[in-house]
Simulated scan of single mutants.
Amino acid sequence: MSVPVLSAQNIGKSYGSGTNRFNALKGVSLEIRAGESVAIVGKSGSGKSTLMHLLALLDDPDTGTLLVEGTDARTLKGTEVNRLRNQDFGFVFQQFFLTANATVLDNVVLPLKIAGVPPRERKARGMAALEQLELADKAKNKAITLSGGQKQRAVIARALVNNPKVIFADEPTGNLDTATGAVVEDILFALNKDKGITLIIVTHDIELAARCDRQIFIRDGREDTTESGAPRKRHAGAHAGAHA
């Protein structure tokens, strides 16, 4: 069997010290394989976002081991961690983190600029990503002029521009109305199904989680095996054709 894309072995994470110490994660183990869609599910404060930040190499665990395609993350040099975060990983957050007065295209190509991709190639790849998300006509608009659904599609375009292996989505529909959120969900699951991008979604939304191949429930910093039950499969009919 192939090596997991990500493997966490008894990882823990704490913040603060002394009487203010908070144990956000208390020994979580999991494996995520290429092409899977996985939901990390839990209430606010359960540790689910902390877990995603550790898996995405945005933070380091205090205890345990995190393997990235079989390599201990602690052995990776800073330049390699930056490359993984910039090229192999794409990020879609509840907060859009777009530069309001920059153009949509400039926002989308930011990872390419960081990676040192030449301007002409940046523009071509950025426009291709916007075309895929049906936003090419908004390329020259300032990000501040977009609707919520358009902003989230711009964020997905930015996540895609480097052809990532993994997309991390933290409450990707949290700031959207139900109809627009459903469109964004369909886009993410179509990318998983059609392009084989591994999709890791952090959510408290049980219906969104149920669309994933697998759910990992987190409660009080630990995996909650009492809630998970049998794996639930993705609903049929996810598509990327609709737009918000």
Rank of each mutant, 00 (worst) to 15 (best):
R234I: 11
P119G: 07
L160P: 10
T65M: 12
I218F: 04
Q94G: 02
S17P: 12
G174Q: 09
A238L: 14
I167M: 05
A139T: 02
D186K: 10
Q150E: 14
V155W: 00
V166E: 11
M127E: 10
Q94I: 06
V202N: 07
L55F: 02
G90A: 03
I197L: 01
A240T: 04
R83W: 11
A242K: 14
I218L: 11
N82V: 13
I114V: 13
G47C: 05
G149R: 03
Y15C: 04
G35S: 03
A56M: 08
L6Q: 02
L57F: 01
L188N: 05
S7V: 11
S2A: 15
I32Y: 02
I114H: 03
D72G: 04
R33T: 12
D205G: 04
V108F: 00
L51D: 00
A157P: 01
S29V: 09
F168M: 09
S29Q: 03
S29D: 00
G78S: 08
Q9W: 12
I11S: 04
R222W: 12
V68H: 15
A124H: 09
N141P: 07
S29H: 02
G196N: 04
N86D: 05
H243W: 15
T65I: 13
R120I: 14
A124Y: 01
Q152K: 01
V166F: 10
F91H: 03
G229L: 05
I216M: 08
R74V: 06
A73P: 11
R122N: 05
S14H: 11
N101R: 15
G27S: 06
A238Y: 13
I200E: 07
H204S: 08
V68C: 13
P4E: 04
I216A: 06
V68M: 12
T19Q: 15
G64T: 00
V161D: 07
R83I: 00
A179C: 10
G126H: 03
I11R: 05
Q152A: 08
K165Y: 09
F189S: 06
H204G: 06
T180V: 11
G78N: 09
R153P: 00
S7W: 15
A24Q: 06
M127A: 02
L98C: 01
L51R: 01
K142D: 11
V155K: 00
L146G: 03
L135P: 01
K26A: 11
G78V: 05
V41Y: 10
S147H: 01
H53Q: 11
L191Y: 06
S228L: 15
D170R: 08
G64W: 00
N175I: 04
I201K: 00
G47Q: 04
R211F: 08
K195R: 13
N101E: 15
L57R: 07
P61A: 02
K26Y: 10
I206M: 14
H204P: 06
N162I: 10
T180L: 05
N10V: 15
R120D: 14
E31Q: 12
A100Y: 03
R234H: 12
N82H: 12
V81A: 09
R85G: 05
G42M: 10
